[in-house]
């Protein structure tokens, strides 16, 4: 596996960077494995890159629907207690989370 590393489209450094964006963490050997798996997948689909798409518009929606709007009228909100019941941690009727900024070193 290690000798394949530089052939990988997505190197281990990239894996670590992407994992940070996605809020995931991988052990060293997992990162190596993911790097190789993702590279294999992307290489297999590489043919896509050679398709001439110059005159094609990118498609975000398959159906041609526009202007779907709702009237500005209030509907029932959820019962707070029901919502907070499935929260991992609650205090003062709010969702409790640990400190947002990291401790200064």
């Amino acid at each position: 596996m290690p000798e394949d590393l530089d052939k990988n489209l997505i190197g281990k450094d990239e894996v670590i960077k992407v994992a940070k964006l996605a809020r995931l963490s991988f052990e060293d050997d997992e990162a190596t494995k993911i790097s190789s798996e993702l590279s294999t997948i992307l290489k297999h689909f590489e043919a896509m890159q050679s398709v001439n798409t110059e005159n094609l518009a990118p498609m975000a929606h398959s159906m041609d629907v526009t202007n779907v709007l709702r009237e500005d009228e209030a509907t029932m909100s959820l019962e707070r207690d029901e919502v907070l019941l499935s929260a991992p941690a609650v205090s003062e009727n709010r969702f409790l989370v640990p400190r947002i900024l990291k401790e200064e070193e």
């Binding site: 992407v18 996605a22 798409t53 990118p58 975000a60």
Partner: peptide
């Protein structure tokens, strides 16, 4: 991981945008 990579800066055009065009194709 695959999706985050495809949307990330520097790869968006080559992957996500190209894929959307293929979708039209």
């Amino acid at each position: 991981m695959l999706g985050t990579y495809a949307l990330s800066a520097g790869y968006y055009d080559a992957y996500y945008l190209q894929a959307q065009k293929i979708r039209t194709l």
